[in-house]
Design a protein around this nucleic acid. Structure first.
Lengths: 213, 213
DNA sequence: CGGATGGTTGATAGTCATCAAGATGGGTGG
DNA sequence: CCACCCATCTTGATGACTATCAACCATCCG
């Protein structure tokens, strides 16, 4: 077990734009975010970047690579970050011994499916304002889970990344931030965001206002 | 093992619109489609249906419920169908014994994540024509995997379902079917579809034309 | 200081949703 | 067997939302 611990707990530091893995690379490990933030994206034939996920501390990157044993996306740090590499063969081996770990893995995978499906709904049927609102509420919840402020937090990603992720133009994202600010729902200062009227934001986002945490 | 087999292999018949499980129901089993087709959807606060997936024979329904132990979606038959109920506790128990089954489950879950992410890209960044094109190519591939014709197949779902799933209006779906038909890329007759020009369809869909099977 | 990167704001146009109406088709009952 | 009816699908006209193009502003960093 000592070797396993040593193997798993080694923390890697990455600077901004540092890459964990690239599209097409062989899958060997999962990566748990310790600090900072990451994005995963794929590149289409015209060279455009398509962001499929953002990852905050405590979250696991690479679950989409288990099937093909090859990473379908590229993962890059949005800022100075650290992470833990978790060799997957060890997960598989330990899972057979520690029943709890297996159940935990199933839940993690299932959760990602559910969250991706929620994003599908977002992208397919919601207006720009609803997308931004939902996005902010989502981030707020994830901060809360990390015992951070759910009302005042920092967006680790650029506006272009948000736009890309939500299927919008940068200009639209910018405009809606200003609009929500003028309605006193948000206070935005660069990457710093404060949710002033959580209830109203839920209404704008057309989300249940329940604390989903 | 005999009891297990008996438990797992029992095939359930469902008629059109028959429901496997409803949103919020306790998760107990996964369901493998034997024949027919299914859709899974959630209902938003205004009562609108949001389709998140279609399932063909050989595919597994319910993976998104493992995490919360409660189904986030409702699953209904699109036509007369049969399926196998697979109690999940048995999957978990057997997984610890049969290493291969565990690996298989991980792959299935991972694959669903990857496919959902592909759909995200579709919904976020593609035009109506690209969405329909990609959708048809996807169905074509799934038919092929089932050793059926990849060029001539039947859409088990209604136009409204396709529109809902792709984040479009029914009218748009209809119009694009007609357009693709007039360009001799498709031959559409109700739910029957024939892909006349696979290459051109790939171009329209902005997809790599490789056979992803 | 000056260039570069990222963000905001304004004007215009395109894609697709919406509204409205007509066509098709499958199922049922006379 | 045919007629009718309801659901589904198609087609057309209009408008809304948001992308795009263009310019300007802010911030950072060498």
């Amino acid at each position: 077990m000592d070797t396993v611990d040593a193997e798993i707990k080694r923390a890697k530091p990455l600077k901004k734009n540092g890459q964990i893995f690239g599209t097409g690379e062989t899958f060997k490990s999962l990566y748990a975010v310790r600090s900072g933030a990451f994005k995963t994206y794929s590149i289409d034939e015209s060279g455009e970047e398509h962001i499929v996920g953002f990852f905050l501390p405590g979250e696991l990157i690479g679950l989409d690579a288990i099937d093909t044993q090859s990473h379908p996306t590229t993962a890059k740090a949005l800022e100075e970050s650290t992470l833990c590499e978790i060799p997957f063969d060890q997960v598989e081996r330990l899972s057979t011994k520690i029943h709890n770990l297996q159940a935990h893995m199933y839940r993690l995978l299932s959760r990602e499916i559910r969250e991706d499906q929620e994003l599908q709904m977002l992208l397919g049927k919601k207006t720009a304002e609803e997308r931004i609102g939902t996005f902010l509420l989502n981030l707020s919840n994830r901060c809360k889970q990390r015992k951070l402020s759910a009302t005042l937090f920092r967006l680790p990603m650029a506006r272009t990344d948000i736009a890309n992720y939500l299927g919008l133009a940068v200009e639209t994202v910018s405009r809606i931030f200003t609009r929500l600010q003028s309605q006193n729902i948000l206070a935005v200062d660069g990457k710093e965001v404060e949710i002033l009227d959580h209830h109203q934001l839920c209404i704008v986002a057309h989300n249940d206002c329940v604390n989903e945490g």
